[in-house]
Design a protein around this nucleic acid. Structure first.
Lengths: 215, 215
DNA sequence: TCATGAGTAATTGTATGCAATTATACCTGT
DNA sequence: ACAGGTATAATTGCATACAATTACTCATGA
C-alpha cells in the first residue's frame, strides 16, 4: 500500500484550525509556539508554518505574548452566510453546467451516506457528510476559485452550525434540501441549482439567526 | 521615529505574491527554496513560511522539483469577477450602513488622490489608488470577513486588470464609477451603494472579457 | 508606599544542520 | 546501442541553536 505522507505542518494546521473552530481553544486563548510544540511533540518549525496560515485566515492574531485565538463573532457568521448565499448559488449553477457523470455519481454517493447516518442517528457523521457535500460542489464547479473562496467560509460556520444541526430533527430538512440541489444539478438545470442552493443556505442562515437573536 | 519591523517572511510573501500576479515569475516557472533564498539573501526559513501562504492561496503548487507558479487562468479571472460582483455589492451595502464620518473622509481623500493622478497621467499611481479604494470599502464594511474574502480575489485580478486599465482612457470611466459609489455610501443609501458597486465590477468584468474573448 | 530600573525570563525571528526523499547522470552489461 | 541499476546531486521536511525583542519580577531608593 502506498503511504502518502502528509507533512506535520499540514496536519498541525488542520488540527489547530479544527480545534479553534470547534472551541477547543476558546476565543481569547493564548497559544505560544513553545507550548504547542511541547503539546504536539514536534519542533517549532512546522508549528510556525501552521500558525502563519491560521494568521492568514484570521483565526489567530499575533501579540507580544503569543498568538491570540480570534475565531469569529456571531455577526461575522451572519455575514459569512450572506456571502455564501450568493457565492454558493453561483457554485451550484456552475456545477450544473460543468459536472461530469463520474462526479455526479460521487455526489450521489455522499448524499446516500448522509441518509444512511441520519437513519442510524450518528449526528457526527451526518455533519461530516453534510460538509463534504458542500465541499464537493465547490470542487466540481469548474474553477479552484470557488473552493478557495468558499471552503474557508464554510469551515468558519461549522462551529456555529454545530449547535444548530445536531439538536432537534433539522437533519432531515437539511438532507431534503441537499437532495433537491442534487436533483437540479443532475438534470443540468443551472437556474434551479442556483435557486435551491440559495434557499438551502438561506435556511441555514435563518436557523442560526434563530439561535443567536441576530438578523 | 518608531520603526515598526516587518518580518522577512511577511516581506517575502508580499513580494512573491506581487511578482507572481504581475508576471515576473511566469505561470509554470519553477521556484526552489534554495534559489529564492540565494536571490533574496535570506535563509530558507522565512522563504518557506511565505511559500506555505502562497500555497494556501493557490498561487504556487508543490512538485517534486520545487514550487510551480500557478497564478490564474482567464476563466478563473471571470469567475472571480462573478463572485466580486455579488460580494462587493454586499460590502458596499454594509459600508453604507456602517461607515463612520472619519472613514468616509478617508475614502474621499483616496478618491481625490485618484483624480489627481489621473490628471497627472501617472497610471501606476492611479491603479494603486483604485485598488486602495476597493480595499478600503472591504475594511469599512463592518466585518473582517469582507476583507478576508475579497482582498485575495481582488489581488488576483490585478494582473489581468493591468493591461485593461492602463491602456486607453478607461481610467476616467473607472473614476466616475468610484465617485458614484462614494456618493451612495456618503448618503448612507445601502441600496444604491450595492447597485453602483455591482455595476462597477460588472463593467470591469466586461472590460476584461473584451480583452480575453471570454464571456 | 510607590515609582523606577536592572536583571531575568519568555517569546518570536532567523539561520543552519541533518535526514529523507526524489530526480538525474553516468556507467555497466548484454 | 540501449536498458537497468547505482551513485550522486538536488530538494524538501524537521529540528535545533542563536539572536533580538518584549514582558515580567524584584529589589532599591525617594
Amino acid at each position: 500500500m502506498i503511504h502518502k505522507t502528509i507533512s506535520l505542518a499540514d496536519q498541525i494546521f488542520e488540527r489547530l484550525e479544527s480545534d479553534i473552530l470547534t472551541g477547543v481553544y476558546p476565543i481569547g486563548s493564548l497559544l505560544t509556539e513553545l507550548s504547542l510544540s511541547e503539546d504536539l511533540g514536534v519542533s517549532r518549525t512546522p508549528i510556525r508554518e501552521a500558525i502563519r496560515r491560521l494568521e492568514q485566515e484570521h483565526l489567530v492574531e499575533s501579540s507580544s505574548k503569543g498568538m491570540i485565538v480570534l475565531s469569529i463573532t456571531p455577526n461575522d457568521a451572519m455575514v459569512i452566510y450572506d456571502i455564501r448565499i450568493h457565492v454558493e448559488g453561483l457554485a451550484a449553477r456552475a456545477c450544473a453546467e460543468n459536472i461530469t457523470d463520474e462526479q455526479l455519481a460521487e455526489l450521489k454517493e455522499l448524499l446516500d451516506l448522509q441518509e444512511f447516518y441520519i437513519k442510524k442517528g450518528d449526528s457526527e457523521k451526518v455533519k461530516n457528510a453534510d460538509s463534504q457535500f458542500h465541499r464537493m460542489i465547490y470542487q466540481f464547479a469548474g474553477s479552484p476559485v470557488y473552493y478557495d473562496t468558499l471552503a474557508p467560509l464554510h469551515n468558519k460556520t461549522q462551529k456555529f452550525r454545530k449547535a444548530s444541526v445536531s439538536k432537534s430533527g433539522k437533519a432531515e430538512v437539511s438532507y431534503n434540501e441537499h437532495y433537491e440541489i442534487y436533483r437540479a444539478i443532475a438534470s443540468r438545470d443551472p437556474e434551479k441549482a442556483e435557486q435551491t442552493m440559495k434557499y438551502h443556505v438561506e435556511q441555514a442562515r435563518a436557523r442560526l439567526a434563530e439561535l443567536t437573536d441576530l438578523t
